[in-house]
Design a protein around this nucleic acid. Sequence first.
RNA 1: GGAGGGGUAGCGAAGCGGCCGUAACGCGCUCGACUCGAAAUCGAGUUACCGGUGAUGAGCCGGUACGUGGGUUCGAAUCCCACCCCCUCCGCCA
Length: 424
Amino acid sequence: MIDLKLVQKQPEVLAKALADRHSDLCVDQFLELDARRRALLTEVEELKSRRNAASGEVAACKREGRDATTLLQELGTLSERIKALDTETVTAKAAVEEWLMRVPNLPDASVPVGRDESENVEIARHGQPRVFDFPVQEHGELGTALGGLDFVRAARLTGSRFAILQGWAARLDRALVNFFLDQHTRHADYQEVCPPYMVNRSSMTGTGQLPKFEEDLFKLSDWDYYLIPTAEVPLTNLHASEVLNEADLPRGYCAATPCFRSEAGSAGKDTRGLIRMHQFTKVEMVRFAHPDDSFNQLEIMTGHARRLLELLELPYRVITLCTGDMGFGAAKTYDIEVWLPAQNTYREISSCSNCTDFQARRADIRYKPKGGKSGFVHTLNGSGLPTGRAMAAILENGQQKDGSIVLPVALRPYLGGLEVIEPC
RNA sequence: GGAGGGGUAGCGAAGCGGCCGUAACGCGCUCGACUCGAAAUCGAGUUACCGGUGAUGAGCCGGUACGUGGGUUCGAAUCCCACCCCCUCCGCCA
C-alpha cells in the first residue's frame, strides 16, 4: 500500500507513477472519495466530542445524586445520529482503503519509464553462450530421453503444467535446493526457514497478492487458505505486525518451498518443458532493510542470485524492468535471465525486487530506532533460484552430442561426485 | 472433537460499567543527578493511528483503539453473542 499522506499532499506524484505504469486508476476520483471520508469524520468526531462531554456530566450527576433525565434524553438522540453517521463513515473509509489496496507501488526514480518488456534495460552480461557443433535439443526432450523427466505420466496423474522428476532428475532437484541453501546460509547472511506452504488471506494481502491477483492463486475450497505462489509470502509475513529493532536490520531469510501458480492467462505460453509449471520448487531470499539502505540491499541480494549462476557456469544477463513491466509491489526490479540455447535467448530465472515500504505498510512491519519514532521497514525479495528453470539451463547448456549432460563442477559434490548424466 | 484458562503499550502484567488508555506496578528505552569513568542507586520522560490547525515539522484541539466483528447501554477493557489465535488437560492422529 502506498502512503495515504502522499496521495493527499502530492497527488501529481502518484498520477505520474500510475501513468508510467499504464494503470487506469484515477487519482482525482480517489481524492473525492477521501474528501468525503474526511468530511464525514470531522462531522461525526464533533458529535462524539459532545457526547463524551455530556456523558461525563451524567457521571457527575449520578455521583452527586442530581437528576439527569433531560441530559439522558438529549444523549439518546445524539447517539442515534452518531450511529447513523458512523455507518456512513465506515463505508467511506472502506472505499478509500479498497482503492489504496489496488494502487501499485511507486517506481523508484532510477527505473526506466517504458510500456512493456521491450523497454526493459539490460545492465550486465556474464559468460559467453556456448557454440554448439551439433543441433541443440531443448531440456524437455533431453530430460525425457535421459529418463529423468516424465510429462506424459504427470499429465495423466494430475494435468498439464506438471512434471514428474525421477532418478537423476529428482536427485538433481534436491542437489540444487541444498546447493542454493548452503550458499545463502554459509556464504551470505540468510537464515534458513521452513515455512507453511499455505497461508491465510491476511498474509496474501500483506505481500500484495490479494485482493488484486486472486485468479493467479490456488485456494483451498473449505478453508480461507491459499497455496503459496512463492516463499516471499510466508517469509515477508514472518514479521507481520511486529516492530523490529533498528540494530537487527538488515535481516535475511531464505526458504526452499514448492510454489503453486494457476498461470491464468498464460495459456499456450511455454507449454513444453519445465519453464512454466503449476507447481515448482524455488529457493527464495527475503530481506528486511532500513529505508536508507534498501536500494543498497537490492544490489547485494541481486549479487547473491548472480553468484549462483556463476557457480553453475551458466551465462546470464541482468535487466532493469521498466515501469510498465514491473510487478505490483515493486519499486525497482532486476530480472536475471539465463541463457537457454534451445530457445536461443535469455529467459528469466530470478527476479529481485525492492518493495520499499509497500508491503511493510500492508503487513504492518515496522522498525524502531533507539529512542526514536518507529517507521516502516523496507522489504526485498529475490529468487535464488527456482530449481526447474535452473535444471532446464543446466541440461541445455551442458548437453553433449550424444545426449549426455556435463554437470557444473560446483554441483558435483551434491550428486555424489557425478560428472555426467548418461543416457540410460 | 470435548473441558478449562488466556489475548491490555517494545516486553511482562494490574484493572473487570463512568474517578482506568499520555493504562497502576515491573522490565526495557531516552534524558538528568551521583562518579575520574562505569556499575549500582536516585529523579524525570517514554502507546499507536485518524481528523482539524499548521509547513508533509513542532505544538495545540478533537476522535479512535484493551485479539476480530457484532450487540446491550446515555456511556463498555469491564456485560452479552459469534469468530480467530495461544496455553493446560482429555480424545483422535502422521
